[in-house]
Computed example of a mutant assay.
Amino acid sequence: MASITKKNNVNYRCLSVLMLGSLLVGCEASLNLEGVAQEMDKPIRRTDQFQGVASNGSTIVAVGSDGLIVTSAVDDLTWNRKDIEGSPSFVDVDSCSDNTFVALSIDKRVWISDSQGEHWLPTELPTPEDMIDVSCSPTNDIWTVGSFSTVLHSSNKGKSWTESTLNEDALLTSIQFLDAQTVLVSGEFGVLSKTTDGGITWSAPEYIPNDFYVQSAFFKSITEGWVAGLSGKILYTNDGGLTWNTQVTSTESPLYGFIESNNRIFAYGDHSTILELSGERWQSIPNAQSPVYIRAALQLTKNTLLMTGGSGALYTLDVPLRDMKISQQ
């Protein structure tokens, strides 16, 4: 009898557990999607991953993954969201001197809009290469660079393209105009090249030491410039790339870009890193934002920058003094 009683107790306990599980399932609250709906109604969402920002003086356009485009007037940061059909992943955007905008998506398309960033028309890029950076020249020509050191150039708003290459199996990551004829490109394996005739001919590539992977480059002139890369490294040249010196930074985070504002030079990157050049050293600027990457920056006013990047980061940074003040939009 003792064994029978023990067995019955075990069965009873098992039945009780099953009944308790049923009660818990039955009492579970219905899924509340109100918070999700509220988040989706916002022009800026926590899931947004911004990759580029540009301004034509009156309108700001920021772009990102999954067809993300937001616009705002420069003098009133009220954002309007546009989700482009097909959800192309935008990797960069620039403004042209005629006030139009040009954006690049990872699916080998360039998108051209009006001066308000309202209407976007795509054009296919005639290349098998992956293009990752786009720029508009002072004469409104569109340029884009990418894999196999490829440079594409259009002088008629994307109706036709001219393709050239440095014949290097390297990814070009940066293109910068110093004037309508002088252009510098740089990228993987420390490749650096320039043209002084608007892209008709390119100089033989110079090579930044140690196969330095250029995430971004900024040149104040044909001779003086900086390149940023992984592990928080910044190199400086004052002879057009013939020699490079490593400058001290206060971070080991990857750096993605530079911006010059009011005769000051800033670098930015992963973990919300913002640096300012002081002499030959880069000093960290306190940043109240969460540790997400900063992918692009824009000068709003003489002393205000707009920073944008991961997890919906789109905020202003006031830079009048060394003691910086952060304000969230």
Score class of each variant (00 low, 15 high):
312 G>T: 06
284 S>Y: 05
37 A>F: 10
229 G>E: 07
318 D>Q: 10
322 R>L: 11
311 S>A: 12
150 T>N: 07
295 R>C: 01
213 Y>Q: 11
237 T>Q: 00
290 S>C: 00
32 N>Q: 05
104 L>Q: 05
17 V>R: 13
30 S>T: 12
70 V>F: 00
168 E>C: 05
94 D>A: 14
181 Q>P: 00
292 V>I: 05
92 D>W: 04
17 V>M: 10
316 T>Q: 15
34 E>Y: 02
231 S>C: 05
287 N>L: 11
221 S>H: 06
119 H>T: 13
195 T>G: 02
120 W>S: 12
248 V>K: 14
174 S>H: 10
184 L>S: 06
107 D>Q: 04
117 G>M: 07
247 Q>S: 06
151 V>E: 14
273 T>L: 05
38 Q>H: 05
280 E>K: 13
10 V>Y: 13
214 V>L: 01
123 T>K: 14
280 E>M: 01
291 P>F: 06
98 D>I: 01
226 W>Q: 03
321 L>N: 15
6 K>V: 07
192 L>R: 08
225 G>D: 06
123 T>P: 00
139 T>M: 06
46 R>P: 03
225 G>T: 03
265 I>F: 02
66 D>F: 14
239 D>V: 09
156 N>M: 09
213 Y>S: 10
281 R>L: 08
106 I>Y: 07
148 F>T: 07
40 M>F: 02
208 I>E: 00
326 I>R: 07
143 W>V: 08
22 S>F: 02
45 R>G: 04
181 Q>A: 14
310 G>S: 10
1 M>N: 10
133 D>Y: 10
88 P>F: 05
195 T>H: 06
163 E>K: 11
49 Q>H: 03
27 C>Y: 03
298 L>G: 01
286 P>Q: 11
75 D>L: 10
97 S>P: 05
320 P>H: 03
197 D>T: 11
269 G>C: 06
320 P>V: 04
195 T>Y: 01
9 N>H: 13
222 I>M: 05
292 V>W: 02
80 N>P: 02
173 T>C: 03
236 Y>W: 05
58 S>D: 09
28 E>D: 04
40 M>Q: 12
57 G>P: 09
18 L>N: 04
315 Y>D: 15
174 S>I: 04
35 G>E: 13
83 D>T: 13
177 F>I: 07
23 L>D: 03
105 S>K: 13
235 L>M: 13
220 K>H: 13
8 N>F: 03
321 L>G: 08
278 S>K: 14
100 T>I: 03
64 G>H: 07
208 I>F: 00
206 E>K: 15
307 M>I: 15
21 G>I: 11
59 T>A: 10
258 F>E: 14
205 P>S: 08
79 W>S: 05
264 R>F: 01
21 G>D: 01
137 S>G: 15
7 K>L: 06
164 S>G: 09
139 T>F: 00
256 Y>H: 06
254 P>I: 01
318 D>A: 15
160 S>N: 14
265 I>Y: 08
28 E>F: 09
117 G>A: 08
141 D>N: 12
234 I>V: 08
52 G>V: 02
48 D>K: 02
162 T>M: 09
131 M>P: 00
27 C>Q: 08
130 D>G: 07
235 L>E: 07
268 Y>K: 11
92 D>Q: 13
138 P>S: 14
247 Q>Y: 04
95 S>N: 15
184 L>F: 11
216 S>Y: 03
225 G>K: 02
134 V>G: 11
109 R>Q: 14
27 C>M: 13
78 T>F: 03
263 N>M: 11
167 N>F: 06
